[in-house]
Design a binder for these strands. Structure first.
Length: 159
DNA sequence: GCCAACGTTGGC
DNA sequence: GCCAACGTTGGC
């Protein structure tokens, strides 16, 4: 029996891959995650249909820029055993893959980024992982209540 | 560009 | 298994 849809936050530097890039492509494989905790979330917990907050990191402003959805469950990350690929890892092989990817699809781009400062100022988001000091995980679980609050804020008129 | 926080690696 | 050195992340 399929379990209930979950919600996630996924970070990307918009100079590398932005919500606008996802909008143009429609969907993408989330390649290049090289952190075990983030990998485990993708490989073990993400399911098709899960909701995703698309977060712009190292940006101005940094924050949630839109929504996406998991469109394909995890499979081994071919970039990890492709020599010359920026994400190549000699320890990963097709027989014994070390890194995994999910595919996500575009849902919507917010009319404005809900900035980190704005997220911090919302008392209803207490406990949101990305607000914790030193939190660097590029794939994080998010409470559905938090997801809804952020999605509503992102759709609201700028200002 | 700085640097604090964190994860990974590898010598012992 | 400890832990120092190193690399990376990401806000500022």
């Amino acid at each position: 029996m399929p379990s209930r849809k979950r919600c996630w936050l996924m970070k990307s530097e918009p100079s590398e891959f932005s919500i606008g890039d996802l909008q143009r492509l429609g969907r993408t494989r989330w390649e290049g995650v090289r952190n075990y905790q983030a990998r485990n979330f993708m490989r073990d917990d993400m399911q098709v249909g899960d909701d995703v907050l698309f977060y712009h990191s190292s940006a101005d402003p940094t924050g949630v820029a839109g929504l996406a959805r998991v469109s394909q469950a995890a499979c081994p990350d071919p970039s990890s055993w492709t020599p010359g690929d920026p994400y190549f890892d000699a320890r990963s092989t097709p027989e014994r893959p070390r890194w995994w990817v999910v595919e996500i699809e575009f849902v919507e781009a917010f009319p404005r980024v809900v900035s980190l400062a704005e997220l911090r100022a919302m008392p209803t988001l207490a406990g949101l992982q990305v607000l914790k000091p030193g939190q660097r995980l590029s794939v994080q679980p998010v409470d559905r209540s938090h997801y809804r609050i952020i999605a509503r804020r992102g759709r609201s008129a700028p200002g």
